[in-house]
């Protein structure tokens, strides 16, 4: 699966996209990202799977594109 990283989260992860093996679900994805990038613990962001926003834990499959979208505040 592919991970797209937006806004200030690119500072924490260091890239704007990543290719990784799909975990079973979004909770597992968040958990493994947090292990690698502890700075995410305090970030406000939501997930979108294949361009659709998700709120609860959702299954993931190879081929999915997951976006991590933080809050944008400037103007």
């Amino acid at each position: 699966m592919e991970l797209l990283i937006f806004g200030s989260l690119t500072d924490i992860i260091g890239k704007n996209s990543l290719v990784l093996e799909a975990p079973n679900n979004t909770e597992q994805l968040k958990k493994s990202l947090l292990e690698q990038y502890p700075g995410l613990a305090q970030a406000h962001y939501f997930l979108a799977i294949n361009k659709i926003m998700v709120h609860d834990n959702q299954p993931l499959q190879e081929g999915d594109v997951v976006a991590l979208m933080p809050a944008f505040s400037g103007g």
């Binding site: 937006f6 979108a48 361009k51 659709i52 926003m53 998700v54 709120h55 976006a67 979208m69």
Partner: peptide
């Protein structure tokens, strides 16, 4: 939610869903 990336000259659109 329409997001424009200046560096890449790309747009990314996310369909919103209600937060219950």
């Amino acid at each position: 939610l329409y997001t424009h990336d200046f560096l890449e000259a790309t747009n990314y659109e996310i369909a919103l869903s209600k937060n219950s």
